[in-house]
């Protein structure tokens, strides 16, 4: 009996009808395009990263891992890695804290929740370039007569201790560049958390309250553990944005080594300096670092889905 059912199901899955034929025909061009424009170019970039290509015209002379070895001892790339780590920690940490905080506040059943939700989510509709330009003005590091932006505001409010040099701070400027990024993406993180919070059954909270848990305990022991998968998703999404950050920094600070990140180095060395081999090597390093972050997550979610 069960065998027969399974058999019929399997047959059903493999039946090839007109709808499926049309569907396949419709997605085939996309599949081909993805094969060429995504995977084809990844393969090509890998080839270039192993080549001695420097100059306008392609030179595919194989040099093994030379480009990667040079990056490992390149002081500018060391700055890039350091900057990326600082940016990622501040940006992801900031987004998670602000996002979770605002989500918890919005979850208290306040009035005009829809209004606040949109308000916090709106910055996400802006591109990083625009955010960068606006925050470049806001975080103008000038002081004295030329004080402006946030520094001027702090000065007028008598909050002099908050006046600082922002992204022009030697060594730690990149941490300040993360502030606009947090401003932009924490609303999105909030939306993720809010969806998670809404998914926690009221019955569980009730049960905890009946057992005598305080509101704080309800959150710490019941709600937060249940939305841990949301934190993981947010971590992955924000993390890969952070590794690839480019436009925000270029818009805020132009091309300067102190605020350099791998994506900017890749761009300048390839198109300003014609070091195509080195640029491709940086691209591969970026790809691998994002893959290290994303692939385990994809594997995890796929397993979860097939489990359901």
């Amino acid at each position: 009996m069960t065998v027969a059912v399974k058999e019929s199901r399997r047959r059903k899955r493999f039946r090839f009808d007109k709808d499926k034929a049309i569907g396949l025909a419709l997605v085939t061009p996309s599949i081909l395009a993805v094969m060429v424009f995504v995977y084809g170019f990844i393969a090509w970039t890998l080839r270039v990263s192993l080549s001695a290509w420097k100059g306008l015209l392609p030179d595919y002379t194989f040099v093994g891992l030379d480009n990667f070895r040079q990056l490992a001892s390149d002081p500018r790339f060391h700055i890039d890695v350091r900057n990326t780590v600082i940016f990622t920690v501040v940006f992801v940490g900031g987004c998670l804290i602000v996002g979770l905080g605002t989500a918890l506040l919005l979850d208290q059943g306040i009035r005009a929740e829809g209004f606040f939700r949109s308000l916090y989510l709106f910055p996400m509709a802006i591109s990083f370039i625009v955010t960068g330009v606006v925050w470049r003005w806001l975080m103008n590091p000038a002081q004295g007569d030329r004080i402006s932006g946030l520094n001027l505001l702090f000065d007028k409010l008598g909050l002099d201790f908050l006046v600082n040099t922002w992204h022009a701070t030697p060594g730690w400027g990149i941490a300040f560049v993360a502030i606009p990024a947090i401003w932009q993406m924490s609303g999105y993180t909030m939306a993720l958390y809010l969806a998670g919070l809404r998914g926690v059954p009221e019955a569980l909270r009730e049960a905890a309250r009946v057992d005598g848990a305080t509101e704080l305990q309800v959150y710490r022991k019941v709600v937060l553990p249940l939305i841990r998968p949301v934190t993981l998703s947010a971590l992955i999404i924000l993390g890969h944005i952070s590794l690839k950050v480019f436009d925000l920094i270029v818009a805020m600070a132009g091309k300067q080594v102190q605020l350099d990140v791998p994506a900017i180095y890749m761009w300048t060395t390839t198109f300003d300096g014609f070091f195509f081999g080195r640029g491709a090597a940086i691209g591969i390093v970026l790809l691998v670092s994002v893959a290290v972050l994303v692939v385990p997550y994809l594997a995890y979610t796929l397993r979860q889905e097939s489990g359901q």
């Binding site: 420097k54 500018r76 030697p170 300067q256 080594v257 102190q258 350099d260 300003d272 300096g273």
Partner: peptide
């Protein structure tokens, strides 16, 4: 040439910090 200049630019950026 551009390659040389871009390497000088990198060296200068490091020096500024």
């Amino acid at each position: 040439n551009d390659s040389w200049k871009s390497e000088i630019d990198t060296a200068l950026g490091l020096f500024l910090s």
